[in-house]
Every structure is written in structure tokens, then in C-alpha cells.
């Protein structure tokens, strides 16, 4: 169904070639036995100004896994995804993709290393048309026709609105345009931040079905969610983040109850 899934390693090497032309990664940067696409976070501390938000996160997610990060507002879910996606330089600790240390690399470099991150609430360029948005997704390497084909096949509604300004689409349709990037890039690692925010439940299910398919193709997925139930439908593992620390990790079923407690107050 998805071409090229098997040679993720080749994809990774191609990505590296873009970033470091003519140079193989040095031995110490690579954990030799790490499967391509594995995301590893070690001892991550991150801060906004003086305020530390993440106090030492350790995490390992393998290809095909979908890790749901749960936790109340301000727990640090978005911050963790930002640090993994190169949008926030961590104060200390390391982020590894496929065993290679990518700490401190910017979002563009990470995109070429096969990491795709869809930010919260703003995964599209609102003043560009749908087609122009899709054109921007070709920076990942796919051709314009490939990007449009994959997007319109999966989300036929976008084909009808191809010349409409993305800012005038419904929230769900905007999220579809954002998702088209993940479909086009076929990333090794996919980071999703609160994709359900402000969307109707039906649309959320549709989007999560896409997430499931992408993961089934061998992509490592980490998603942050408040919308616990939908997230747990596709998650293979769940972790609860609270006040900048990973409190518990377990199966989605185990975590559902714990998450409820952390949202609605422990006394209830």
C-alpha cells in the first residue's frame, strides 16, 4: 500500500546527505543498534526564560508505535514536542532520531532527517490557498503532483476547495491540509500536538484513522492530547505528563483512568 516503507534506512541516509553533504555521521553520534525511526529522549530539561518547564524527561518510542502524551494544561506536553521537533532548544539532555543525536538542530534540518511535526492549532498558512499550502509541503522532497495526489486521495474534500484560502476552511479541513504534509513526507517520526483541539468528534476520528495508517506504515508517532478517548483508540502506549515530569507510562487502558484523575482533581 505504501511504497518505500521498507527502505526507511535509505530515506534516513538521504536525509542526512541533505544536511551533511559528503559526510557520514560520526560513530559516536550513532547508537548502532537503534532501528531507523526510533525517537529517544534522554534527560531532557527545557525552559522558557528562567522558568523550567521540563525537568528531566526520558522517553523511547519505536517505529510503528503511537505514544499518547496525556496531562493537564501546562504539564509540558507541547514543550516536549517542541523540544523534540527542534523548535525549542533544550536546556540540557539529548534528543536522538534513529540513534543520531539531533539535539539543537533546527526544524528545517530535522524535516530533512525525516521528522515531521504538526504544531498545535496552526499547521497551515492561512493566507495561502490549499494548493499553495500543498506546494509548501514539497520542500520535504515529494513532487507537487505526488503531494496533491496523496492529499486529495485521502481527503477528497480538499480537492473541492483547492483554490480556497486555507484560513477560510473549517478547523477540520485546515487540519487535513496540515496532515497532508505528513502524508507527503512519509516521515520516520511524526509529532502531533493537540490535533483534536476545537474539532468535532467525527473529524477527530477521521484524523486519528489517518494517524493509525501512518503508524502502520512504520512511522514513529508521538501525540499530545487532552482528548483522551480518541487518542487512546490509536495509541499503543500512553504516558502521563504532570508538572514537567513523566509520571506514569503504560497501556492506553491503564492510563485512561489515571488521566481522568489528573484532569478533574484528585479528590473527585
Amino acid at each position: 500500500m505504501r511504497r518505500g516503507r521498507s527502505d526507511r534506512g535509505a530515506l534516513y541516509e538521504r536525509g542526512l546527505a541533505v544536511v551533511m553533504p559528503g559526510r557520514r555521521p560520526a560513530a559516536e553520534e550513532v547508537t548502532p543498534d537503534a532501528p531507523p525511526g526510533r525517537l529517544t529522549v534522554r534527560g531532557l530539561h527545557a525552559a522558557y526564560g528562567r522558568i523550567e518547564v521540563l525537568h528531566g524527561i526520558d522517553l523511547e518510542v519505536s517505529p510503528g508505535e503511537v505514544l499518547a502524551l496525556l496531562g493537564p494544561n501546562g504539564a509540558g506536553k507541547s514543550t516536549l514536542l517542541k523540544a523534540c521537533g527542534g523548535r525549542l532548544r533544550p536546556r540540557s539532555g539529548r534528543v536522538l532520531v534513529s540513534g543520531a543525536d539531533v539535539t539543537g538542530k533546527g526544524p528545517a534540518a530535522l524535516a530533512h532527517l525525516g521528522l515531521c511535526s504538526i504544531p498545535e492549532g496552526r499547521g497551515v498558512f492561512p493566507n495561502l490557498s490549499v494548493r499553495e499550502n500543498l506546494l509548501m509541503w514539497t520542500y520535504g522532497g515529494a513532487s507537487r503532483s505526488e503531494v496533491e495526489e496523496r492529499a486529495f486521495e485521502r481527503f477528497p474534500r480538499l480537492a473541492e476547495r483547492r483554490n480556497q484560502r486555507a484560513g477560510t476552511l473549517s478547523g477540520g479541513e485546515q487540519q487535513m491540509v496540515a496532515f497532508a504534509r505528513a502524508l507527503a513526507a512519509r516521515p520516520a517520526v511524526l509529532l502531533l500536538d493537540e490535533i483534536s483541539m476545537g474539532l468535532a468528534p467525527l473529524v477527530v476520528s477521521e484524523l486519528y484513522a489517518v494517524v493509525g495508517d501512518i503508524a502502520a506504515g512504520g512511522t514513529t508517532v508521538v501525540l499530545a492530547e487532552q482528548f483522551v478517548d480518541s487518542a487512546l483508540e490509536v495509541a499503543t502506549r500512553a504516558a502521563i505528563l504532570s508538572q514537567g515530569r513523566l509520571e506514569q507510562t503504560g497501556t492506553p487502558q491503564e492510563m485512561a483512568g489515571a488521566a481522568a484523575a489528573s484532569y478533574l482533581g484528585k479528590s473527585g
Binding site: A108, A111, H112, P119, F125, P126, Y139
Partner: peptide, 11 residues
């Protein structure tokens, strides 16, 4: 619109 998103797309 969003320079950071453009970077995330790989540009």
C-alpha cells in the same frame, strides 16, 4: 504567515 511552519516543512 508563519516562518516556523515553513522551517518545519523543510524550507
Amino acid at each position: 504567515d508563519d516562518p516556523e511552519l515553513l522551517s518545519m516543512a523543510g524550507a
